[in-house]
Nucleic acid binder design. Structure first.
Lengths: 189, 189
DNA sequence: TTCATCCTAGTAGCTGCTCTTAATAGCTAG
DNA sequence: CTAGCTATTAAGAGCAGCTACTAGGATGAA
């Protein structure tokens, strides 16, 4: 009974905030007939940000502040690079990279960091991604710092196979294997 | 002289906040090289609301317009959606999405469009990408319009398998298979 | 000199949180 | 029956970004 109640309330909470982000914890507590603490626990479990963050996110979107995906060549900061061997980049996430109604970072930002690190690793004027197999292992919350490590596994002429693993502290959040091609035999970057 | 300074500052303040409402008093004080108190007096005299109120107003305005679909979470424009079935989105690329030294669109933009379309397809308040297998089939040049088509292949409880194919005119440029999870069993979005 | 204006400073209090620790009730498996 | 678990509530410290108020120093004009 009680686990049903909790699950129902949490689902209701997600839907309610998705439909209207302007509720305070106080109002939510009254709506669901529980204490403020319970609402805060729920938000914590569900990764739902506080009122001010939700409002800010809506406003930032309206203002076009949200980065769809940054336009610089490298997403994140390159802190180490060994051309055709290995490299590390760091990406500090922020609320603009999360979903509107939760503080979980959207996957394509994590992908973008990994992909651009892989591309940067290749010792060629132009490298393009041919294909990739990726896996998201753990959610990343906005504000967390993602460290991506990349290793070149194989070099075959114009083709490179690169493995990227991304971490938040000790927790692995992403892994991917990218197949890149250099120069003219373009597929995509 | 000093009345000029004050008048100038206040005019600058109004203009600055009109162009970007996201400054704190602290930041404004630094910008105008005065104390926080002066900024607060200025805001008081000019009837300018505090940061949180400004942000809230922007959010409330924006909220009236968008609402129905959380479509601004989508990279590209959603032009058709059939929840849990299929959807189409369009992304107009521009030079900011290309590599610095070539007019080829960077892969993560294409991925972002496909990924966010897949997420939007799922009929749940929160869906996250678990893994994906993707392939870049042809390069996209900056300025080209990418049309992404997505189909839900499988629904298994909280799991969805979604196929996305992206085209520039008749030319297919991308394909991907995404495995998404709804709500709690979070991996990544 | 005196006075008003401008600016700075400090304090108290507010809202809506976060983070931490702890206590309580109810259920469940050994 | 008891130990351990989950769900809930509570209490306290602290924070950001304010409002509102009081007070004092600096500057320029009369």
């Amino acid at each position: 009974m009680s686990r049903t109640r909790k699950a129902q309330r949490q689902q209701g909470l997600v839907e309610l905030l998705a439909s209207d982000p302007f509720f305070t914890d106080q109002e939510l507590a009254e709506h669901f007939q529980v204490s403020i603490q319970t609402i805060r626990l729920d938000r914590l479990e569900l990764g739902l940000p506080e009122l001010r963050e939700r409002v800010k996110h809506v406003a930032e979107k309206a203002y076009g502040r949200v980065k769809s995906v940054a336009s610089s060549d490298i997403i994140g900061d390159l802190i180490e690079i060994n051309l055709d061997k290995s490299g590390i980049s760091v990406l500090d996430t922020d609320t603009s990279m999360g979903f509107a109604n939760s503080n979980v970072v959207r996957g394509h930002h994590i992908f973008a960091q990994a992909n651009s690190l892989a591309v940067a690793l290749v010792d060629a004027p132009l490298a393009l991604t041919g294909s990739a197999e990726i896996r998201y292992l753990n959610p990343v919350k906005t504000g967390e710092r993602i460290v991506a490590k990349a290793y070149v596994l194989q070099v075959q002429g114009k083709k490179r196979i690169i493995r990227v693993e991304s971490f938040v502290r000790e927790r692995q959040v992403f892994q991917g294997e990218f197949i890149l091609f250099c120069r003219e035999n373009i597929t995509q970057g």
